[in-house]
């Protein structure tokens, strides 16, 4: 194999990535928790701005998960980063 020895992500890293990816499910699927009109934001009922806000948060979470896993993914040498 021409590659460096695979490096597995640490257990802590795995837990963090798992939380980042599971959180959006927990938020969006607990429907009664956000089925409220108030507080409104710029006229939008809570139901809407809360869910729209979590679009951005989810994107940031997935982006973070990408950065965390990119450095440790097995089979890819770290020094090839950023090519």
């Amino acid at each position: 194999m021409p590659h460096d020895a695979p490096r597995s992500p640490s257990p802590v890293m795995r837990v963090v990535v798992a939380i980042l990816l599971i959180a959006p499910f927990a938020v969006y699927l607990s429907v009664p928790s956000y089925a409220r009109v108030k507080p409104r934001l710029a006229g939008l009922p809570f139901f809407y701005w809360w869910q729209l806000l979590w679009v951005i948060i989810t994107a940031l979470f997935i982006g973070t998960a990408y950065l965390l896993t990119r450095r440790t993914r097995p089979g890819r040498p770290a020094d090839r980063e950023g090519e």
């Binding site: 599971i22 959006p24 699927l29 729209l52 679009v55 989810t58 997935i62």
Partner: peptide, 10 residues
């Protein structure tokens, strides 16, 4: 459709 289009990405 909004929550759908978000939780699909993880």
């Amino acid at each position: 459709a909004l929550p759908y289009a978000v939780i699909a990405y993880p």
